Computed example of a mutant assay.
Amino acid sequence: MKTFSVRFYRRLILVFLSLLILAPTAVAVRLGMKCGRLEKQLEAVREEPVPRGTGMEETGPSVEPILYQTLYPDLYGTAQLPDRRVRAEDTVYLTFDGSPTANTQRILDILDQYGVKATFFVVGRTDDASLDLMREIVARGHTIGLRSYSESFQTIYSSVEAYLEDFDRIYRLVYETTGVKAEIFRFPAGSVNAYNSGIYQELIAEMLRRNFVFFDWDVTGEDTRVGGVTAQKVEEAVLREMDGKSRGIVMLHDSAGKGAVVDALPRILSELQEKGYGFQPLTAAVMPVIFSYKSAP
C-alpha cells in the first residue's frame, strides 16, 4: 500500500483552501457582470420616450395608444377631484335631461320660487332662443352639464369614435355659448343601456381617462311611459322612490311633450322640502350614482 508524505498532505490542504476562497469570488464576479447588464437594460427602458395622453407617462414603457384616444386632443376635462367625493345627507340633486326646450323657462322660474338650484344636461339646439336659455341656466346659478349634441342614440352609440365626435360638438357649443368648460355629463339613456351594450366599457373608460365625470340616477319621475304621464303620476313616482333615501339623484325630462313634469315640479319641491330635504346642483366633487355593469342588456 502506497503511503504519502506530510508535504503532500500540506499541499492538498492548501489547494482545497484556495478553492474555497476562489470559487465564491468567481461566482460573485459573474453575478456582478449579469447585474450590470440588467441595469443597463433597465436604464434603456426608463429613458425610452412615452407618448402623452396614453396614461402610461409615469407607470411604465411606451405603448401604442388606441386610435380613438388620439382624437380630439383638446377634449379633456378640467375637474379637480377631491380625495373623497361629497356624499351629503338629506339632499336631493334634481336633474333635467334634454334642455333647452319651451319648458325650460317655466322650470327656471319655478326653481327660483322655491330657492332651488338644479342641474341641466343639455343637447345641441342652436336656435337663438335655445342659446339664450343655456346662458340663462348658468346666469341663475344652476349647473350646466352635457348630454349629447344629437338625439339619435343609434348614431351616438354606433362606435366610440362616433360618441367622441358628438361629445366634442356639444362641449364646444356650451363653451362658446356660455363660457363654461363643462366638467360633468350624462350618457344618453344612462351609462349602461340597450344602445351602447357593445361599447359601454370602452366609453366609460375613455371618458374617465379624459377627466370628465358622469352621473346616472337612482330616482325618476317615470315620465317616459308610452302614452304619456300625468303630473300626479310624476309627483308620486319621485316621492315614492325618494322614500327612505338619505339622498337621491332625480332624473326628469325637460323635452317636448313633458309639460306634466313642469306641472308636477311645485308639488315635488314643496313635499321634499317639508320632509327635510335640501337641494343642491351637481358638481364634479359629488359622489355619483353609477349603473352597475351587471345591469347591461
Results as ranks from 00 to 15, higher is better:
residue 245 K to I: 05
residue 136 E to A: 08
residue 92 V to L: 00
residue 260 A to G: 08
residue 206 E to H: 05
residue 207 M to I: 06
residue 224 T to E: 07
residue 38 L to W: 08
residue 168 D to G: 08
residue 104 T to W: 03
residue 68 Y to H: 07
residue 27 V to L: 14
residue 4 F to N: 11
residue 119 T to C: 13
residue 228 G to Y: 03
residue 114 Y to D: 14
residue 166 D to W: 14
residue 255 S to I: 00
residue 284 A to P: 00
residue 279 F to R: 10
residue 52 R to K: 02
residue 199 I to H: 06
residue 260 A to M: 10
residue 117 K to R: 13
residue 257 G to I: 07
residue 29 V to R: 08
residue 245 K to R: 00
residue 187 F to W: 05
residue 122 V to R: 10
residue 34 K to M: 07
residue 270 S to A: 10
residue 286 V to M: 03
residue 16 F to E: 14
residue 95 T to A: 01
residue 265 L to I: 04
residue 11 R to L: 07
residue 127 D to V: 03
residue 164 L to E: 05
residue 180 V to T: 12
residue 179 G to T: 14
residue 22 L to E: 09
residue 29 V to G: 09
residue 223 D to E: 02
residue 231 A to M: 08
residue 205 A to E: 03
residue 131 L to N: 01
residue 74 D to Q: 02
residue 60 G to M: 06
residue 8 F to S: 05
residue 134 M to Q: 06
residue 94 L to T: 08
residue 63 V to S: 00
residue 296 A to N: 10
residue 275 K to I: 04
residue 273 Q to G: 12
residue 209 R to Y: 14
residue 229 V to L: 11
residue 31 L to N: 07
residue 131 L to K: 01
residue 9 Y to W: 09
residue 102 A to R: 13
residue 86 V to S: 08
residue 66 I to Y: 15
residue 141 G to F: 03
residue 130 S to N: 04
residue 274 E to V: 04
residue 79 A to G: 06
residue 164 L to S: 09
residue 148 S to Q: 01
residue 63 V to H: 07
residue 218 D to C: 11
residue 96 F to N: 00
residue 182 A to C: 11
residue 83 D to Q: 11
residue 190 G to A: 04
residue 287 M to E: 12
residue 77 G to L: 13
residue 53 G to H: 06
residue 171 Y to W: 02
residue 277 Y to I: 11
residue 154 Q to T: 00
residue 155 T to L: 02
residue 167 F to S: 09
residue 97 D to A: 13
residue 226 V to K: 11
residue 282 L to S: 12
residue 193 N to L: 15
residue 42 L to A: 00
residue 149 Y to N: 09
residue 165 E to D: 13
residue 130 S to H: 02
residue 5 S to F: 01
residue 240 R to M: 01
residue 36 G to L: 03
residue 150 S to C: 04
residue 2 K to D: 15
residue 92 V to C: 00
residue 124 G to D: 15
residue 77 G to H: 04
residue 274 E to P: 03
residue 144 I to K: 07
residue 86 V to I: 12
residue 119 T to K: 11
residue 288 P to S: 02
residue 225 R to D: 01
residue 175 Y to I: 04
residue 293 Y to F: 15
residue 213 V to C: 11
residue 188 P to D: 00
residue 197 S to R: 11
residue 204 I to Q: 07
residue 182 A to T: 03
residue 83 D to L: 15
residue 140 R to P: 00
residue 75 L to P: 05
residue 36 G to C: 05
residue 43 E to S: 10
residue 279 F to I: 05
residue 261 V to N: 05
residue 69 Q to M: 13
residue 110 I to L: 05
residue 244 G to W: 14
residue 119 T to Q: 15
residue 14 L to F: 09
residue 82 P to K: 01
residue 174 V to H: 15
residue 198 G to D: 15
residue 206 E to T: 06
residue 184 I to R: 11
residue 243 D to C: 10
residue 156 I to S: 01
residue 292 S to P: 05
residue 191 S to P: 15
residue 6 V to G: 02
